[in-house]
Amino acid sequence: MTDPTFATRPDPARAAERDRDLKLLLAVLLALLGVTMTAIYALALNAGAAPRLADLALARVPQTGVDNPVTAVLLNYRAYDTLMELAVLLAALLGIWSLGPAPAGFQRSGPVLAGMVSWVVPLLIVAGGYMLWVGGYAPGGAFQAGALLGAAGVIVRLAGDPQAGLPGEAAQRWLLVLGVLVFTLVGLGLMLFGAGFLTYPPKLAKWLILLIESAATLAIGVALAAAYVGGRPTATSPLDPRPSAQPK
């Protein structure tokens, strides 16, 4: 072995012994973790009906601008978390892009699949819009809507478009940062008007949340579809030799 940590211990018997000790230690630690978690679970079960944060949060839902408690938590009470989630998604896509240019796409679909795609993709886009709107008062919201848009992109790429139906690289970059950008601008704007960062005034809350969610939906959809493409877009390069970039 060339590993320097093992170079000082050439004896295989001692290495095996150490290996066994490590496994034993791991088992003991895991057992302790299991006991602790069971104890916490039992404590939580027996805690009874003490006053909890949920009651307070539910009572204030009418002031958040939305009727769906889940959306209220995601975009009002804990808007910071959602902003960070969008930033994480953006960082993940930057990681994928840093791996290199996108691999070549699939072969062009035949007429049957192309016909199905031309039905399913508009349906997915409409369903995404519905999901975004319905999130205000029923299960739904920006992430689910964005996932539907991303699924439309995956289908378009599977059907033969190497760019998954996305626009050129410059437009893609703007769409990708749109979620974080609008979110942050709304937060900073609210700070200018005296409220805290992302503390919406109740009268405007609904429209601000809808604005943020619309931008987030677009950004999430583009990010997921671009992640499926799996690399930096290359279609904007005039030197691109891919055959599908040429007109038939």
Binding site: P103, Q144, L224, Y228
Partner: peptide
């Protein structure tokens, strides 16, 4: 928890699965 169910089906199973299939192929 219909919200979580929707997100799990769409993102966890659907898009995550598609991404991982592409990664496995590569």
């Amino acid at each position: 928890a219909p919200d979580v169910a929707l997100a799990e089906a769409a993102i966890g199973a659907g898009l995550g699965g598609a991404l991982m299939l592409a990664a496995a192929r590569r």
